[in-house]
Design a binder for these strands. Structure first.
Lengths: 168, 168
DNA sequence: TCCGAACGCTTGGATGTCCTAGTATATTGC
DNA sequence: GCAATATACTAGGACATCCAAGCGTTCGGA
């Protein structure tokens, strides 16, 4: 977005919270705000890597999910649940992926309500290439130390579980 | 989005990554994906609390920022830099806040290019009330332990600094 | 058996984010 | 002093997300 700021704006916000009598919740506020900002940075990096492939993160996630499905196909509601996004978001992504020839919609063999999303061979190839790029350029250079990665996985996993994402 | 999944989809993705020969980057991938999902959950909670006030998170952030400015006013480019969003996003937020009577635009006294955003008294009052609600209903019940909060602030702070957010 | 409730997907609308381009004002350099 | 460059904001467009509604299909209890 531009040049680095002279000081960390989130640390400033934390101090402001404390100064206004909200010391009790200043730290969680800062942590949550940091998560929001970190997500924004990571998303920008990911989108940057995917752009040459004509993909966005939302579309890539769907392609990757399908590529791990045994048959290369999944019902739309299943994809919605696994990606944890609203069904209309999946409809949107499938529309565009289908237009790009990366997936096709097909009717469910036994349930007339359900639509299956199926990877085309182009889709499978592109998913592989995009995954390689993301692994090399983003996940392989996350900037997080090994211990920190483990800690994040644990802490955020507990949070997601408590939020009702999964039973496990 | 619905019922909890039987298993953690991110842990599954991590296993898929390992199974396909990407063991080296499977953990960072899982950590990053967890950050994306956690952000989504937190944002939904925040928006839920702000909805009764007629605010979204983007608009709230701008109100809060202004409420901490000595004069209750900031140039748009300053707000854009501090909130770390694109200038057009600030334009968008100000348009809506101004329509709601919470802020007003005024010309900069010495620089004809610059527009100042100024809190109205309604804006200041609403910011206070919304902050109280967020502190009580979100930040005060984040679900993160004290140690984890400190760890998140440190790890994500290092990450943001390395990403060029601030010099400090 | 059959009708109401539940489920699955899509359409339309509101928001937010970013990018690109355009207009106006300031600053800089010759 | 004036032209070239830089800065500040806004308009228009592409995407993504969610919610509310509508339509068709399936399930379940009387």
């Amino acid at each position: 977005m531009g040049t680095p700021l002279p000081r960390d704006p989130i640390a400033d916000a934390q101090r402001n919270w404390e100064r206004h009598g909200w010391g009790e919740v200043a730290a969680p506020m800062a942590a949550i705000t940091a998560i929001m900002r970190t997500q924004q940075i990571l998303l920008a990096r990911i989108e940057g890597v995917l752009k040459p492939f004509g993909l966005t993160f939302a579309r890539y996630e769907l392609l990757a999910l399908l590529s791990f499905a045994r048959s290369g196909a999944l019902p739309m509601n299943k994809a919605s649940a696994l990606l944890q996004v609203h069904p209309t978001s999946v409809t949107n992504a499938v529309d565009r992926l289908e237009k790009a020839g990366l997936v096709v919609r097909s009717p469910h063999p036994t349930d007339g309500r359900t639509t299956l999303i199926e990877l085309t061979s182009e889709g499978r190839t592109l998913a592989k290439r995009a995954t390689t790029a993301l692994n090399n350029e983003v996940f392989g250079q996350s900037g997080f130390g090994t211990d920190d990665v483990e800690h994040l996985i644990r802490v955020l996993g507990d949070f997601r579980k408590a939020a009702g994402d999964f039973a496990d």
